[in-house]
């Protein structure tokens, strides 16, 4: 029993300690971000690897999620005789929730894990130390560009996901099932508010981008420099990002959308 309590205690202390470490790391990262922005081509390079190469998986997943929403949504709405509202259902679920959340999860497993692996391996092979010994700050040169590339890519990826999803819903709803095209779009437009729904979705995706990128670079930078350490760090990135996205999503949703029905 005391053993169990002791384990819980040490886990809690460890968790708080790592949180503090991550916060300090974040502060350092922000401090050296200026240097990274002065040499923006470093960030552009990482946007290519993190963002552009995630494009295909994000677009295809978005299309499929939208198509599933179209099928399931029509099935349910049909019972209440409001199949015309399919556009509203598809658009709102994508723009408010599924777009940022699923794009964030995909981004974490596609780009976040790659960032952790890359930084972790650079640490394990002493590349970061070598850089430091050459009077080049690894946080400014390696970490900050990857972080900002993630933060900048996430909202774009989420928007692409949502847009592809709406197209998928349209494909199933209008083209295949035969919901009225005019009703589909006009009901969607009258129900989806730009500032309220779309901007809040964008804000969510930015927050997720910060969380996933920070977790990815921190886990990579903090991992123990062995093969096992790197693989553990990658696992922690994917699991931690998923938890962070879902928990933050709940918090943000409860702040953003509590006013309305």
């Amino acid at each position: 029993m005391t053993e169990l309590l002791r384990n819980i205690g040490s886990m809690a202390i460890n968790g708080v300690w790592r949180l503090g470490l991550a916060a300090r790391f974040f502060a350092l990262l922000l401090r050296y971000s200026g240097q990274a922005f002065l040499r923006f081509h470093l960030t552009i390079r990482e946007i290519y690897y993190g963002g552009f190469l995630s494009l295909l998986i994000i677009a295809v997943s978005g299309l499929f999620v939208g198509m599933v929403l179209g099928l399931q949504g029509y099935e349910t709405l049909q019972r209440f005789g409001s199949g015309d509202a399919l556009g509203v259902l598809v658009a709102l679920s994508l723009v408010r929730e599924l777009g940022p959340v699923v794009a964030g999860l995909l981004f974490a497993s596609r780009a976040g894990s790659a960032i952790t692996a890359e930084i972790g391996l650079m640490k394990a092979t002493e590349q970061l130390k070598a850089m430091d010994m050459m009077a080049v700050n690894p946080i400014a040169r390696v970490v900050a560009p990857r972080f900002w590339a993630g933060v900048l890519s996430m909202p774009l990826l989420a928007a692409i996901f949502s847009a592809m999803g709406v197209l998928g819903g349209w494909l199933i709803g209008v083209v295949m099932i035969g919901v009225d095209e005019g009703a589909f779009w006009s009901q969607m437009q009258s129900a989806v508010d730009f500032r309220y729904d779309i901007m809040n979705g964008v804000i969510k995706s930015v927050v997720f981008g910060v969380a996933v990128s920070l977790i990815a670079v921190f886990e990579g930078y903090d991992c123990s420099p062995t093969a096992e350490g790197v693989s553990r760090a990658i696992t922690r990135t994917v699991v931690g990002s998923a938890l962070a996205i879902l928990a933050l999503d709940f918090v943000l949703t409860s702040f953003m959308f509590r006013g309305q029905s």
Partner: peptide, 24 residues
């Protein structure tokens, strides 16, 4: 630069699509 430019254009186009076609 070219591919990142393509990526950013697609992303912003998606945002415009959401703003103009999906939202009001």
């Amino acid at each position: 630069d070219l591919w990142v430019g393509v990526f950013v254009v697609i992303g912003i186009a998606a945002l415009f699509f959401l703003a103009l076609r999906v939202g009001n």
